[in-house]
Design a protein around this nucleic acid. Structure first.
Lengths: 342, 342
DNA sequence: GATATCAGGTAACGCGTGTTACCCGAGAGC
DNA sequence: GCTCTCGGGTAACACGCGTTACCTGATATC
């Protein structure tokens, strides 16, 4: 890299003006008057030299970096979780459109608590997006209390936090009710992760509420937890099948459902005749599973885009009109749930 | 964000030394002698103040940013392509371990050619990783010619480019031969993207080579192209099924295979009895498809990690011992290919 | 004719850090 | 006693840019 980059001074010299004028032209400063002729000369010189302002110098003086940090929690599930890749992509797109770069940091579940101080303290980012925030992560709360621009994707217990989330409870309620309405009364549940107290308000809570409303008991022996993966769904289902299986399964996500389907099929049972199943997420493959999977479509792309707009507004204005946004997820009925005519 | 960050000057004052000494201690400069007592005082002051060096100022003076850029081409396929998420995750991990941050830029297929000048010209990154480089992207070649540290994941026609890639041709050859050996002589192919001249040396080339060696003709009517997605695999397979179908299918990736399986099943045919199928990638779900999919396991994580090491070495030393690294992919035999005893 | 206004432009400061060249005092060598 | 080394530390420059305050000459205003 022997190549030397041109500085604004060289642009200035080439255009026969001062560095200040170059800065005014290139940043389109309204308050200062530059003649059209001068402006043209500067632009021409800059383009001929291939001038690009030094990001570090610019951010040092302006205090802005043009970069948004994205912290991805539980990133080790990226291969089996459909939500993470979609979010990264959509967020990246929207940020690039808004003139921001995206800096990614991944954190593993159970790893040491993520240290925002490095990123924020170094003034390396203008704002922060956290995907799947850990409700127990108090550092994140501190950051928000200090007024640092942050937008969250997923539930987080903080009154002032800007966050987009999905009403998974009521979606799961609808999915479960859909099974009930199609004649299933023995309905099991395989969660996509270890159950926590918060899941009461989430997917598991929706399942439980639907059972309650239908007057069906929740049987512990039909409830299991996985780890996002098809493999864990497979194992959980095998364990459920060992003794007096249910006639329907609600899976915490589509990947779990895929594993469960494999276990059910392997045991010689048919879907949906012997055991019906519904998933959650509507991953692109759901439609092509065997049988096609009834599931819940989560507007992941829309959520990520909204989140991107929120964080950019937060950076620019210091506050955002509507900090909490809750999205609804839609039930998509396919063959796996045994609804007639599908 | 009324909070003011402490500067190294404040640390210096608190420790009763000069700013220079603070810098020496914090950066562990060997050439200068600092007494143990002074060193302690400085470290204590820094930690008490929660001092974190300003990234912009540091990079302005040092010329290093501590950031690696990752350009993801064809990123719109992130939801259906297993390789991209895995690469992002593994690369992020390895970079963080090495003390680098990861800056992500996504580019769409057919979008305007990616402009590296913004990122590189602004000196915003120390090095670049390109995932799925476009062979026709001459800007990338220019960058490498100028000596900018770049590491590629995927094939790219440049003699000096550091790159990790997978020998997909020979892997696909093995997969196709596996079908031949199991009695299939009418073997179709569904590619995961539009065929280009380069695919001759890739997955399609392996398929063709295997047919040739077995003395089997390549039938145009059994060859299709998709767009990574299960949906496109489904459509392609339906089209193949319309007239005199083959007795086996080689799919360009597992997602395509999933769609093809759905089309085959829907047509009332059985897998593998009527039509056998093999995929490529060994996505986590492959094992749980119905039937379980014979496929090729690509060491995506290992490739990404190697690439991370390569780019960091390139940044530090200006060159890398072994610039081209080719990985082998392994055939994983499951039920879909109809091998006996599986 | 004196003054105010304004278009067009520039000198100079400051952002926070890494690093080079330099300084000072104390002991060593003769 | 004088110079030499060397441990311990500092003043000052440079990195490249945005921006404020200021300057100059020409025209408008009274």
């Amino acid at each position: 890299m022997s190549q030397r980059r041109p500085t604004s001074l060289e642009v200035a010299r080439r255009a026969g003006v001062s560095r200040t004028t170059v800065s005014f032209v290139l940043n389109d400063v309204q308050t200062s008057k530059i003649s059209a002729a001068t402006r043209e000369r500067v632009l021409k010189a800059a383009s001929e030299l291939g001038y690009v302002p030094d990001a570090a110098a610019r951010s040092l003086v302006s205090g802005k970096t043009g970069t948004i940090g994205l912290v991805v929690s539980r990133a080790e599930h990226i291969r089996v979780d459909a939500f993470i890749p979609q979010t990264i992509y959509s967020l990246s797109r929207i940020c690039m459109q808004g003139g921001y770069r995206l800096l990614i940091e991944t954190a593993e579940e159970g790893g040491s608590a993520y240290n925002y101080d490095q990123l924020v303290g170094a003034k390396a980012i203008d704002g922060l997006v956290v995907l799947n925030p850990d409700p127990a992560d108090h550092r994140l709360g501190d950051l928000i209390d200090r007024g640092f621009p942050a937008a969250l994707i997923g539930a987080y217990p903080h009154p002032d936090a800007a966050a987009v989330s999905v009403d998974s409870a009521s979606a799961m309620d609808r999915a479960t009710t859909h099974l009930v309405e199609n004649g299933h009364h023995r309905i099991g549940f395989i969660h996509y992760r270890q159950m926590t107290r918060l899941d009461e308000g989430g997917r598991f809570g929706g399942y439980r509420a639907a059972l309650e409303r239908a007057g069906l008991p929740l049987q512990e022996r039909w409830v299991r937890s996985g780890d996002y993966s098809a493999a864990s769904g497979y194992e959980a289902m095998r364990s459920i099948l060992e003794d007096d299986p249910p006639d329907a399964i609600v899976a915490g996500n589509d990947t779990i459902a895929l594993g469960a389907i494999a276990a059910i099929t392997e045991s010689g049972r048919r879907i949906p005749e012997d055991i019906a199943i519904v998933g959650f997420d509507d991953i692109p493959q759901a439609r092509f599973m065997n049988p096609p999977l009834t599931t819940v479509n989560v507007p992941a792309a829309e959520m990520a885009e909204t989140c991107g707009q929120v964080i950019m507004e937060l950076i620019r204005n210091g506050r955002v009109g509507q900090p909490k946004r809750v999205f609804q997820a839609e039930l998509v009925v396919r063959a796996s749930s045994g609804a007639p005519g599908v």
